Computed example of a mutant assay.
Amino acid sequence: MQYFLTFFETMPVWMKAGWIFFVLSIFWIFEGYYKLVFAKYNKWRHAKTNLILLVFVMLINVVFGIATVGIFLWLSDSNFGLLPLINVPIWLELLLSILVLDLIAQYFVHYLLHKVQWMWRLHTVHHSDKNVDVTTGTRHHPFDFIIRETFALIAVVIMGMPIAFYLFYRILSVLFTYFTHANISLPKQLDKALSYVIVTPNMHKFHHHYQMPWTDSNFGNMFSIWDRLFGTFVYADTSKIKYGLDIADHINDENILNQLHLPFNKTVRYRKKFDS
């Protein structure tokens, strides 16, 4: 187990970047054979906008990577956090760390991104995509991603976890992000059965419906237990899903400048969502 974790701790940058593009490519290929939605759009032009946003995300990751090293050195010296207080096998420490990271750095921050108005403005970039596919997983406004990474570091400090746990979580998170956004159709019974434990492609697509209340449901990234526990789980007929965002349907979702400016665009009205 220690060797397994050491692998992620010493994983070179090129391998981490390679993992992102490998998983992205695998689900891109699957989308050609097992489509959930048969929409007519230029897949490469659509991907261009989302991949440019991925570049911003990767640059932010470099900055947070530097900050992360300092935090893990401090945690190692201080023994701060919950993990040093308990005596359990390392595999259980890893599982607990992943659960807390998924709860705080995925479910909880995602919930806030929908419920806090200034945060929702940033998050609309992700939801404005009218053709959700695997590249939508990379579609985050830079400020949105900074918020997410900040909450990940908060979870790290709370648990006092070693860097190997965090890096393993990041690898898993990439897999689930592209899996759940991919325009793929699993057998309905299999997708529904899996959704009792993990977030599935069908389950996450309801979250990308253009209107409430589905937009404010299914916040999880890896585990569906949080949505079930906190009453935000939805599973219905996928044929009723329409992608995009009703408050920003007039905005070109494939124009990178429009998307970077979207949170600050005064023509987009948000009041109705927050007055309800």
Results as ranks from 00 to 15, higher is better:
residue 48 K to D: 09
residue 69 V to W: 03
residue 62 V to K: 07
residue 25 S to W: 03
residue 65 G to H: 04
residue 66 I to G: 13
residue 24 L to N: 02
residue 16 K to F: 02
residue 68 T to H: 03
residue 27 F to D: 01
residue 44 W to F: 11
residue 31 E to T: 06
residue 29 I to C: 04
residue 65 G to T: 05
residue 68 T to M: 04
residue 28 W to M: 14
residue 53 L to K: 05
residue 30 F to C: 15
residue 15 M to N: 01
residue 43 K to R: 13
residue 29 I to G: 04
residue 15 M to K: 04
residue 56 F to N: 09
residue 36 L to V: 09
residue 49 T to N: 09
residue 54 L to I: 03
residue 46 H to E: 15
residue 39 A to H: 11
residue 48 K to N: 08
residue 66 I to H: 04
residue 21 F to M: 04
residue 47 A to S: 15
residue 64 F to E: 10
residue 61 N to W: 02
residue 53 L to G: 01
residue 46 H to N: 09
residue 59 L to N: 02
residue 66 I to T: 13
residue 20 I to K: 01
residue 15 M to H: 00
residue 22 F to R: 01
residue 15 M to V: 15
residue 28 W to T: 15
residue 22 F to T: 15
residue 21 F to K: 00
residue 66 I to A: 08
residue 48 K to S: 02
residue 60 I to W: 00
residue 66 I to R: 08
residue 53 L to Y: 11
residue 64 F to P: 14
residue 23 V to A: 04
residue 32 G to M: 07
residue 64 F to Y: 13
residue 59 L to G: 13
residue 52 I to R: 10
residue 35 K to V: 09
residue 45 R to C: 05
residue 48 K to A: 07
residue 37 V to Q: 10
residue 19 W to N: 08
residue 29 I to A: 12
residue 61 N to R: 05
residue 50 N to V: 11
residue 65 G to K: 07
residue 37 V to T: 12
residue 28 W to K: 15
residue 36 L to A: 13
residue 39 A to I: 13
residue 21 F to C: 02
residue 69 V to K: 02
residue 58 M to A: 13
residue 40 K to A: 14
residue 50 N to E: 05
residue 57 V to R: 11
residue 29 I to H: 05
residue 34 Y to D: 07
residue 60 I to E: 00
residue 65 G to R: 06
residue 56 F to W: 08
residue 51 L to R: 08
residue 39 A to K: 04
residue 53 L to A: 08
residue 28 W to C: 13
residue 65 G to C: 06
residue 51 L to F: 02
residue 35 K to P: 15
residue 42 N to Q: 13
residue 57 V to F: 06
residue 14 W to G: 04
residue 20 I to Q: 03
residue 14 W to L: 12
residue 61 N to V: 07
residue 50 N to Y: 05
residue 68 T to C: 09
residue 49 T to Q: 01
residue 38 F to N: 14
residue 18 G to S: 03
residue 18 G to Q: 03
residue 41 Y to V: 10
residue 42 N to A: 04
residue 37 V to W: 06
residue 60 I to A: 00
residue 45 R to I: 01
residue 20 I to F: 00
residue 51 L to T: 12
residue 34 Y to F: 15
residue 60 I to R: 05
residue 26 I to G: 10
residue 20 I to G: 01
residue 65 G to M: 01
residue 56 F to Q: 06
residue 29 I to E: 09
residue 17 A to F: 12
residue 46 H to I: 11
residue 32 G to R: 15
residue 37 V to K: 15
residue 48 K to L: 05
residue 33 Y to K: 14
residue 43 K to F: 07
residue 19 W to Y: 09
residue 43 K to L: 10
residue 35 K to C: 01
residue 56 F to G: 07
residue 31 E to I: 11
residue 37 V to I: 11
residue 69 V to E: 07
residue 44 W to Y: 14
residue 59 L to C: 14
residue 31 E to C: 10
residue 38 F to H: 13
residue 37 V to F: 13
residue 31 E to V: 14
residue 56 F to R: 08
residue 22 F to S: 09
residue 15 M to P: 04
residue 46 H to K: 13
residue 60 I to Q: 08
residue 61 N to G: 12
residue 57 V to M: 08
residue 42 N to Y: 03
residue 37 V to C: 07
residue 67 A to D: 10
residue 44 W to R: 12
residue 25 S to Y: 13
residue 33 Y to N: 06
residue 46 H to C: 11
residue 51 L to G: 05
residue 45 R to S: 06
residue 60 I to L: 05
residue 20 I to A: 02
